[in-house]
């Protein structure tokens, strides 16, 4: 039996949730005060995901870098792979919000899009 302790982030209350796991399966969730907490805890212990926001280099622009985000969530354990893969990307200025910087980042099947307008 594995015990995981989490802080729920679905609202400002921040319930301390305890999840009991066995062989990768959720056995019980306690400490939450609403169904959203249960949903959060269950996805957080089985397949946690994050949106990654970072930078890529920009050539010929008014700034040397431009902000980007993954256009959707990536598995939490792939976060640092995504950030590393972004270091190999260089865009040409000008760029607009929504421009695609990468079609599939670090094999996650998720696009990376530009989040600033830079001339």
């Amino acid at each position: 039996m594995e015990i995981r302790e989490l802080t729920c982030i679905r609202c400002p209350i921040g319930c301390h949730i305890t999840v009991e796991m066995e062989n990768g399966e959720v056995k019980s969730i306690t400490g939450n005060s609403c169904p959203r907490g249960e949903e959060y805890a269950s996805s957080e212990v089985t397949h946690p995901e994050r949106t990654v926001t970072s930078l890529v280099r920009l050539k010929g622009g008014e700034r040397p870098v431009v902000s980007v985000k993954t256009d959707g969530n990536v598995p939490k354990e792939k976060m640092m792979d995504v950030v590393k893969a972004l270091k190999d990307i260089e865009l040409d200025a000008p760029v607009r919000i929504g421009d695609v910087a990468c079609e599939d980042i670090a094999g996650c099947g998720v696009r990376v899009v530009v989040t600033s307008n830079v001339g």
């Binding site: 949106t51 926001t53 970072s54 930078l55 902000s67 985000k69 989040t115 600033s116 307008n117």
Partner: peptide, 22 residues
């Protein structure tokens, strides 16, 4: 503020800072 989490109340979606400003 290139991280996301802006605009959940105003636009009902999660935007980054520059996107919210835009």
């Amino acid at each position: 503020c290139i991280h996301n989490g802006f605009g959940l109340h105003t636009f009902k979606e999660e935007l980054t800072g520059p996107e919210y400003a835009a």
